[in-house]
Design a protein around this nucleic acid. Structure first.
Lengths: 155, 155
DNA sequence: GGCTTACTACTCGGATACTGCTTGTCCGAGTTCAGGGGG
DNA sequence: CCCCCTGAACTCGGACAAGCAGTATCCGAGTAGTAAGCC
């Protein structure tokens, strides 16, 4: 049970896009900034574009730019954009299978195991939604040099 | 990012082991109760045994039985026993790679992105640790028939 | 009749294949820009 | 001198492989129970 590596890539890339300002930046440059695979990062950026977090500009001098300020992008937005779903536990209703399932009456309520796992996941989702990327940028700005470095690398 | 199916199997099996009472039950019977693969369920039970949630009894009339009451087994115990780790996000320190990494000074603090994800996961872990299997059994007992069915199936 | 002993059947336990998803790569569609030619 | 047209280069976008963790299976090690043989 590991989160896709693309989430980490997307988070850092979104932060970089914010520091550079408004102009679109190509996936090649963004990948080079952190030594990533350009094609694969491009794939993740397409996911972000579909989710409405970035907008893609085709053609030369094109690339990706933020669709909205970091204050309006939560960790949950990014995780859902990349992973597609934040549901960790998938109930297969095994309580209805096998000998126990045959002898038991068809259940009317939701599975208690499923409900308990859902409660825990909801706490995770809320914690993800409570943190926006602007908060992380705030921590990054404690070292003032990083902003300078990003602008130098991405021109 | 899906939780392993074995977690669901383990949770239902632990609940069944509690309803049956004290005697050890073989993985074959436990699997048949929910129409699962006996060999694979056995593998999960071994993980639970290593984690100290159940004790294994070898030989004929052997099997598995609970190592402690359901009040002392949390959802976190089960998830960690099966998954091995509850760390979803793995920071690969890409901030130190590529052009940005070369130009930036070696960081002293922990990655801000990593810290934010850890905070969210901690909320999940706490929600898992706050729920014990006895709570789930309490919900199951609302339908009094299930206890009867389990005892009939597992003899 | 009671004890010992060998055997059998049944269980866990770990080593061994298979499957699906994450990861990674490649090439085509579309667009902007530049340069040359014509009016 | 200005406008139009053609070409090229660069970008995104989706289709196509490789690697790995989760899934599933099988067979061997060990033990309790049983039944036969012996004292």
């Amino acid at each position: 049970m590991r989160m896709a590596k693309g989430v980490e890539w997307a988070l850092h890339t979104l932060l970089n896009l914010d520091m550079i300002g408004g102009g679109p930046v190509g996936s090649g440059q963004l990948a080079e900034a952190h030594g990533l695979s350009a094609s694969y990062l491009n794939k993740q950026l397409q996911q972000l574009a579909r989710a409405g977090l970035v907008v893609s500009v085709p053609g030369p001098r094109g690339g990706f730019r933020l669709a909205r300020p970091l204050e309006a992008i939560t960790l949950l937005d990014v995780v859902e954009a990349i992973e597609g779903s934040t549901q960790l536990f998938h109930c297969t209703e095994i309580r209805c299978c096998g000998k126990i399932g045959e002898l038991s009456p068809p259940p009317t309520d939701t599975c208690a195991v499923n409900a308990a796992m859902r409660r825990a996941e909801e706490a995770w989702r809320q914690a993800l939604a409570a943190q926006c990327l602007a908060d992380i940028r705030g921590e990054l700005d404690r070292v003032p040099m990083v902003r300078q470095v990003v602008r130098t690398v991405l021109e």
